[in-house]
Design a protein around this nucleic acid. Structure first.
Lengths: 211, 211
DNA sequence: ATAAAACTTGACCAAATGGTCAGATCAGTT
DNA sequence: AACTGATCTGACCATTTGGTCAAGTTTTAT
């Protein structure tokens, strides 16, 4: 009991690869817009341009699509944080993280909303995935930042709250895009607004951290 | 065309008042946890301790409950921002806003998630409600903050982005509570963590704004 | 060319869900 | 007590939805 998925061991065919790709792309579009429960297999299959039974030939259930999507995206989602290296210049490393995150909000807003939708509802379907990986990574990076502060290279603040504030401020522009657009008249996809946003955030974190 | 709801002009009875209250409280619990589409009338009626037809005796549809809930909560939701007065000390007014917002994240996380769920999905059901009210209020307060900056009472940053960053950082603790709890081991409902969070945010916005 | 394997789908099913309705019960007024 | 309007619910209905299946069609390897 517990064989979650029975992967066929065979090599994937050309068609299989192409269709899985189409399905996951469609699922990202749909799930990120409506959340898990708000999305239907019909919507996804239509978006993917194939029949529902055919979609279910590639993924055995809605859950299966969702889980596959999340776990495939997790790595690229965490990449900016992974890039934060203890060997670089402290402030520059953190500002670079901020820049990468705000670029992700511009370039991959759907991915951001996919995770946001999930976590906001208590992460019922991905708590296990997150619990290990994110936690470990965040602890590691928080320790690095903490060290820099101990060494007097940055002003002292709580490293975990610092990371939260970076997540919150950068992802806000993707997750609450509708609201941002309502207030600003344009979104982060607008080049001018993107530069404004980046400059604002870089300045914000600089003033908090620079000795 | 356009008579959205036909309010009975009569005075509300005791029972009516009590039951509407029970329903809205139950709806807040359910909607904030699962979003609009993810919630069912059955869940709400069970949470409210009454039969589904009875619930529908008080609200004519799921939509109706949702709209009523959102519009009732909007005022208290915006209260902290309304409190920001042009006559106070600039930095103190803003820090006070931050404090009120972080208290709301502690005391009313369900309300925060209710709005977050809605906006993240493009605010399909409340765009009209938000469009006027929030926009006007935010413009008004951004202008006040902008004036303070012109007068040299605060460091110059984009006032609207400043407000976004306050929203993002404070609401993060309610909306993404699950993630915060996963990383910190406790949530903002913990008194110690609440003080940490508040102190962190006050420090953050002080260092960004104080001349 | 042909058979096996891979792929595709219309038709279908059971469960869940939003909502209705006729009639029963209850509360307040006289 | 009796009447009236308000409140309440079991039974029901139509639609949506996740998922299956048998029977076709296309690809691939030989």
């Amino acid at each position: 009991m517990g064989t979650a998925k029975v992967e066929k061991p065979q090599r994937k065919t050309r068609i299989q690869r192409a269709n899985e790709q189409k399905i996951l792309e469609a699922a990202l579009e749909v799930f990120s817009q409506h959340g898990f429960r708000g999305s239907t297999i019909d919507q996804i299959s239509e978006e993917a341009g194939m029949s529902k039974p055919n979609l279910l030939y590639y993924f055995k259930s809605k859950q299966d699509i969702h889980e596959t999507l999340l776990s495939r995206l997790l790595d690229s989602w965490l990449a900016p944080m992974r890039a934060l290296s203890k060997d670089g210049d402290p402030l520059e490393e953190i500002l670079n993280y901020v820049r990468l995150k705000v670029e992700m909000s511009r370039d991959f807003p759907r991915e951001s909303r996919l995770f946001a939708n999930e976590i906001i509802q208590g992460a019922p379907r991905i708590k296990p995935i997150l619990e290990g990986e994110i936690n470990d990574l965040l602890n590691e990076k928080a320790a690095i930042i903490g060290n820099w502060m101990e060494e007097g290279k940055l002003k002292k603040v709580d490293p975990k709250h610092l990371i939260f504030s970076i997540w919150a401020t950068t992802q806000h522009y993707a997750d609450f895009e509708e609201q941002v657009r309502m207030v600003l008249g344009r979104g982060i996809d607008d080049p001018v607004e993107f530069e404004n946003t980046k400059a604002f955030l870089v300045n914000m974190f600089t003033s908090m951290l620079k000795i």
